[in-house]
């Protein structure tokens, strides 16, 4: 179909010759990872409804390579935490994070997940970064679908530029150790 405006992802920097293309492994892996992020929606409240809108026809998150919503943590790359996480819920969130295989990324969507939001109470966890490391924070109460899409695109940038060795680095291990993971 010639009338569709399909936009292909640009290839990474490299040397092009006849019949070959040479580039860095890092870039290729980053490119592949960034454009096929499988989200695991951990939707608890209002932001989950906005995520539904993000997935639905109008905003269509599938355009960014996230067509398949993976409800199994084992096959997911990006954990999207949407909504209030209470203290009762925190161990479950942590367990889900532990079940994901490396490399894994976390987007914290909405004020509640980022900081507890308006619910500064005895029963609410004041930000999910108290229990798991977070890569991208999306503010808003709830954020608009555009903001959620923007958060995913920010994460794609991170993923694209991540070294393939990062997950084995002592810094990363230290980070996990600080969360007792």
């Amino acid at each position: 179909m010639s009338d569709t405006k399909t936009k292909m992802v640009a290839p990474p920097e490299g040397v092009v010759g006849e019949g070959f293309f040479a580039t860095k492994l890092n870039d290729v892996v980053g490119l592949a990872r960034a454009n096929s992020l499988w989200p695991l929606p951990f939707a608890t409240s209002c932001c989950g409804i906005e995520f539904m809108a993000t997935m639905a026809s109008h905003y269509d998150l599938a355009r960014f390579g996230s067509e398949r919503v993976s409800f199994s943590p084992r096959q997911a790359d990006m954990l999207m935490v949407m909504g209030t996480i209470s203290k009762k819920m925190a161990p479950i969130l942590r367990q889900v994070y532990e079940q994901m295989s490396e490399p894994r990324w976390v987007i914290s969507v909405g004020a509640c997940a980022c900081s507890g939001g308006v619910f500064d109470t005895y029963s609410v966890l004041q930000g999910i970064d108290k229990v798991i490391p977070v890569d991208v924070y999306v503010p808003g109460c709830p954020p608009r679908p555009e903001q959620i899409v923007d958060g995913v695109m920010q994460l794609q940038e991170l993923v694209k530029n991540e070294s393939v060795r990062r997950r084995n680095s002592p810094e990363y291990k230290e980070l996990l150790a600080s969360y007792n993971l």
């Binding site: 900081s115 500064d120 109470t121 005895y122 609410v124 004041q126 930000g127």
Partner: peptide
């Protein structure tokens, strides 16, 4: 009302 263990605020 507030969480007594909070440290960030």
């Amino acid at each position: 009302m507030e969480d007594s263990g909070r440290t960030d605020k």
